[in-house]
Amino acid sequence: MTHAEAVTVDARGMRCPWPALRLARAMRDADAAILLADDPRAGREAAALAAEHGWTIAAEGEARWRVCRG
């Protein structure tokens, strides 16, 4: 899957749990998402959500993660 096919979830300025909630909502209809979140806890919460659903997650820089199904 290319970056163009990933949905962007811009949760900058939002405090947890909102970035994870927005990510979960986006992943209902998408196979991949880019999460942009500046809350220091967002990475941990997104990783926990990904583990719960069997998604992969990889950091792509500061405050940016790529989440994919399977």
Rank of each mutant, 00 (worst) to 15 (best):
P19M: 03
W18K: 06
D38H: 06
C16G: 09
P19V: 01
A26W: 06
P19Q: 00
R15E: 02
D39R: 11
R15C: 00
D39K: 11
P19T: 03
A20G: 14
A37K: 04
A11N: 06
R28A: 13
G13D: 08
A32Q: 15
A24D: 15
A37M: 05
P19E: 01
R22D: 14
W18H: 02
P19S: 00
I34D: 01
A11E: 09
A24Y: 05
I34T: 10
P17W: 03
R12A: 12
A24L: 11
G13N: 12
M27H: 01
R15M: 05
A33F: 04
A20F: 01
P17A: 00
R28I: 14
R12N: 14
A11G: 00
L21I: 10
I34H: 13
A24M: 07
R28D: 15
R28M: 15
P17R: 01
C16V: 13
L35V: 11
P17D: 04
W18F: 04
M14K: 13
D39C: 12
M14T: 09
P17Q: 02
P19C: 04
R25C: 06
R28V: 14
L21N: 12
D38T: 04
A11P: 00
R22P: 00
P17C: 00
G13A: 07
L36N: 06
R28E: 15
P19I: 04
A20Q: 14
R12T: 15
M27N: 10
P17T: 04
L21T: 08
L36S: 05
P40L: 06
A26D: 11
L35F: 12
R28G: 12
L23W: 09
D31W: 07
D31Y: 05
L21S: 06
A30H: 14
A24W: 05
R25M: 10
L21C: 06
D29W: 04
M27S: 10
R28Q: 15
I34K: 03
A32S: 15
D39T: 10
P17M: 01
L36R: 06
A20Y: 05
R12K: 14
M14I: 07
P19Y: 02
A11T: 06
